[in-house]
Write a protein that binds this DNA or RNA. Structure first.
Lengths: 349, 349
DNA sequence: ATGTTTAGCACAATCGTTTGTGCAATTAAT
DNA sequence: ATTAATTGCACAAACGATTGTGCTAAACAT
């Protein structure tokens, strides 16, 4: 069997024409290069029969374009990122691009390695939800004129385009809602510190307090990761405080699951014993033992916009003036917030 | 700026040696090809300074090996697949392989296109959770001696290696549990028909009945997709039946969410009004309004084993005798099953 | 018959690697 | 001093595609 994949060469040999001619015919350049109708048809026919399909390594090498984009996320098993991933992959495919995926596991080192891997594979551009603690490698990429778009997490004082939710506003509204329901001892279980979503959400949390002349109790701002364990551990600790916080603002869906676990272990009920609002709406949120009031993000749109932004950069070559795009969030009211009895603030709210 | 990426050539030029020598030095073949220590060090130093990193397109073209594997799944936003994806990506990375990801959206056409795309990109092997309705394209790949491993879904009469849960046994146990609790009118909301997980689960459902001399009511076997909508719609219809089924065996986590939605819309309660058991355990399963009794799959292990199986094939070249691996499932008891009053079977069970 | 166009294609370089082999120059052997 | 062995590296082909340019033969003009 000499049926190693058909190549331009094997077709050319078989038909007694040159590789050049085959290439041109198959790329629809017969007119421009005066390939006769007869030759063209003969080539197209042979290509179809042999099921010729160009070797994209060779093509990429020659063309310096691979129709591939690199995509790095911190945790694909987080449903928030999974749904964005779905949207990114779908949009990219629609425009003829494939995705190389890496999960950085919230590790900057893995992120750097993955990035290098992708550059070596000559991706046309990158979509990254960076861990967010270091930027030098991202800036370096951008300076090499490789298109890049940040997703979910960005760097405020950096000139890299990004797409994210308006986390500040979302958090502000979430905490406002708690305050309007009479809560004043509100815990905030935060995610990975010094990442933009976390910073913005915590800032929203604080500003909501300041706006209503409430003092901020820093001891109620706890936690350091977007994962479930963090939610569990910090809630366990919070529930030992005296006085108890009357409400929890949870900064991610996984944190919330951990928090719920801790709360139920302690024999407490949401919202009777403690109120809660959580970032990230999920399909299951409404079916939790207490349907969860959430801050929902437009994950599909985030993915689509990020992809579009990247492909614009790739296909127009010129590096646009980098845009930062914030998408509005939406509060989904359910049953996890109780009106608090000590309505000190009723007159104000 | 002449700083287009450093290449072997640019290093060679700079040092006044040949490309060959640079390549050999950087690949640790200095001894074998008698590159002097001095030359070697000089090359290594220059490579480090210039941050040389080989172009994997060129490398792949020459070596016919890309250290890339193609990965096709039907729905990355399904948390079951997302957690497998995490595990596959992580294992692959550990062995130095990158992942090209495609989401087929349960469409055989997209699956075929994606497959072709990946072949053109010269992946070293494929891990596929096929839609499962057609096999010709998969067989074709295998016949080209391209390593392939099926994941989650397989084809019983085909010689392709696969890794999946023991869906038959899992379903058998799940339905047994319902029967042992006195249920005899048990609805089965199935997923995509003619896929192996669905077939095996439905077969388990039926055999559980047959084993206990229960007749099978085909009108209680409904549905046709693993998605949430299917669960919702079919449950809506089931709840209009007379007499009502007393229990539901749901074949996937998304189906269950749809079913729960329908049940709660109809003002019914699990398990008071209707019992339920669901395939796929999820982090949230225990926190649902009624903590769900589930059939849990070892998704991490599935991903790891599939990756290992594939890498074995890739790296040993010889195509092993294809193995099919079934991983046991585990029932996680919670509160969604009520003991049924009409305990016709108590003596038997 | 000679010169000019045009049609129809092929040559060869190139992208960045890897690798079998060849060839000087040095060293060792006798 | 001559031959043989070894050291240290370079040449060139190959992987499979794309593309600027050049070449031949026919068609046309005069």
């Amino acid at each position: 069997m000499k049926n190693s994949n058909p190549t331009l060469k094997s077709i050319a040999l078989k038909l007694g024409v040159s590789v050049t001619t085959v290439s041109r015919a198959l790329n629809g350049k017969s007119n421009r290069y005066r390939i006769s109708k007869e030759t063209e048809l003969k080539i197209l026919k042979a290509a179809k029969e042999l099921a010729y399909s160009p070797n994209q390594l060779a093509r990429g090498l020659r063309l310096k374009r691979t129709n591939t984009i690199g995509y790095i996320i911190p945790d694909i098993s987080n449903p928030f990122f999974a749904s964005i991933a779905k949207s990114v992959e779908k949009s990219a495919r629609k425009f003829g691009y494939s995705i190389i995926l890496c999960d950085s596991e919230e590790s900057t080192d893995i992120e750097k390695e993955s990035l290098q891997l992708m550059l070596n594979r000559k991706v046309d551009g990158l979509i990254i939800s960076p861990v967010g603690l270091e930027v030098s490698h991202l800036v370096a990429v951008s300076q090499k004129n490789i298109p890049i778009v940040l997703l979910d997490r960005y760097f405020p004082n950096l000139n890299l385009p990004f797409v994210t939710s308006d986390n500040y506003q979302g958090a502000l509204e979430a905490v406002n809602l708690l305050i309007e329901n009479g809560h004043t001892r509100i815990a905030c279980i935060q995610g990975l510190k010094n990442t933009s979503p976390n910073n913005d959400r915590v800032r929203g949390y604080k500003d909501a307090h300041l706006n209503k002349q409430l003092t901020i109790d820093e001891s109620l701002i706890v936690g350091d990761s977007f994962g479930e364990d963090n939610g569990y551990i910090e809630t366990k600790l919070l529930l030992r405080k005296n006085p108890l916080p009357t409400a929890i603002f949870s900064v991610s869906n996984l944190i919330s699951l951990g928090a719920i676990r801790a709360i139920s272990e302690e024999g407490l009920k949401i919202p009777e014993d403690i109120s809660m609002i959580s970032f990230d709406d999920q399909p299951y949120s409404r079916f939790l033992s207490t349907p969860m009031t959430t801050v929902s993000q437009q994950s599909t749109q985030i993915g689509q916009i990020a992809t579009k932004l990247l492909l614009d950069q790739i296909e127009s070559k010129r590096s646009h003036d980098p845009q930062g795009i914030f998408l509005p969030t939406k509060i989904i009211l359910r049953d996890s917030i109780k009106r608090n009895i000590n309505l000190k603030l009723k007159s104000i709210g």
